[in-house]
Nucleic acid binder design. Structure first.
Lengths: 256, 256
DNA sequence: TAAGATTTGTTCGTATGTATC
DNA sequence: GGATACATACGAACAAATCTT
């Protein structure tokens, strides 16, 4: 006989601890005041006075905000707490913590890359400056010659991943750029820590590099369809290469 | 003449505070021990003893891990700290904090959706159970009839976003599912808080609903190409609809 | 229901470290 | 180098939550 459907049963009001509540209050206050990165927050003493809580509680609240990258603190005169822009690296790390408990395979990552990167390439055709194109070519210098051993192979692969992340930076879509950069970061970590990509392969090196050279040419000339097609081929090749690697799951925390 | 390029100059060793170092040590220890969600962590007293630091310092360290969703604590006998699986909601919130400082437009979101959702639909064709298809149809019941006012229009739009998020859950790619779910969450928040989608439009309602009906049919019959095409049309329509909305930027912290 | 045990949560006073002037 | 202003850290006591008996 309930007159309305229960949309939010809220079975338990979880009674958060004081530091958590203080942290939320400060967060809300920052938004309300429209503060931006670099702006000062009240000092410990004032917060103690304003919230009528002990120093320890206030400090725990600040730690919570610090851990989320929302505030930074400095000691000394002129020091204090400041609104902090959440860095991309920190966002990567926090998100990686989530995926630590999920079962992500390399195939999963490449399924997403195959969908995102061709679209990104197409959207950038004819929109890059000479300086940006030159930067991409500079990155490619790191694999101008085929790798001679496993270590060099890994370094080249990392550089190649940086090529993709950098390219996505040149667009104006911060969401797209973050997603692509996040995947590149995961693959980089796997390459470095898990010692993936051990075996140099001259044929694959050449085909991958040619792809990127063609891609730069298409981007420079403004040929969006070609850029999309080339990137799609590139991703397809990389994905196929990955199938040889075991379906390794992500199993590590990313350092803060 | 440098023999090797400097890859990690590390210009400043930033001397992290003690609680941060303790938090990192505990994190590393958890990984090292291979602990999984639900496993017990040492109690405050033992940590104080093991790290030889004060209670306050240990507590701040735990707050840092709590803020990242990595541990949960309970009071009372049998209480203590436990390894906590980072929830999707928390990951959403932490990531949203990052984008709070970026300039994300609705067009950006739709550019990514247009790339991801058709691929997701194609990958799921013929792979859904009857129960899953029924669940999608149940969601569609929320917009079986056209909306009569702005409020109802928003509720329908939220339900429609849930359709997409739920669909992505049915796949096995947790990365893809997270990205799609994250975007759906942002659009939901915008709809609810920013009062987007105010004007009911019978024509758009019908076209969107027909898309989803066709999509379900294609998913049921296992026609991947059709599923991809239909989802692409659906996204294209939604993106065009969005161009009428102002390029609203995300401006709020998501509640913890 | 009530009492006791256990564990985290909170406070306060004091002392130390660090960066600026 | 000394004074100042700020966060950082410690320790002991007390409060609150929750499980067991």
């Amino acid at each position: 006989m309930t007159p309305e459907k229960i949309t939010d049963p809220a079975p338990k009001p979880p009674r958060r601890s004081r530091p958590v509540r203080v942290a939320e209050a400060i967060k809300d206050w920052v938004v309300e005041q429209g503060l931006t990165p670099g702006d000062r927050l009240p000092g410990e003493a004032e917060l103690i006075d304003r919230f009528q809580m002990s120093k320890g509680t206030i400090r725990e609240a600040m730690r919570i905000l610090q851990a989320q990258g929302l505030v930074e603190t400095k000691t000394g005169p002129g020091g204090g707490s400041f609104v902090g822009k959440v860095s991309r690296d920190r966002a990567h790390a926090l998100l990686a913590n989530y995926f630590y408990f999920q079962n992500i395979t390399i195939a999963d990552i490449y399924a997403v890359r195959q969908a995102l990167e061709p679209a990104m390439a197409a959207s950038l055709a004819g929109r890059l400056t000479d300086a940006q194109l030159a930067e991409l070519e500079a990155i490619m210098e790191h694999y101008a010659a085929p790798a001679k051993d496993a270590r060099e192979e890994r370094l080249q692969h990392v550089a190649s991943l940086r090529f993709h992340a950098r390219l996505s930076d040149f667009g104006e879509n911060a969401l797209l750029s973050f997603f692509i950069g996040f995947m590149a970061q995961i693959l980089t970590d796997l390459t470095v820590y898990k010692r993936l990509y051990a075996a140099p392969n001259h044929d694959l090196w050449k085909r991958g590099r040619d792809h990127q050279l063609d891609l730069i040419a298409a981007l420079r000339s403004g040929d969006a369809d070609s850029a999309r097609r080339i990137m799609a081929s590139h991703m397809e090749m990389a994905a196929a290469l990955m199938e040889d690697q075991q379906a390794e799951v992500l199993k590590r925390f990313i350092a803060e």
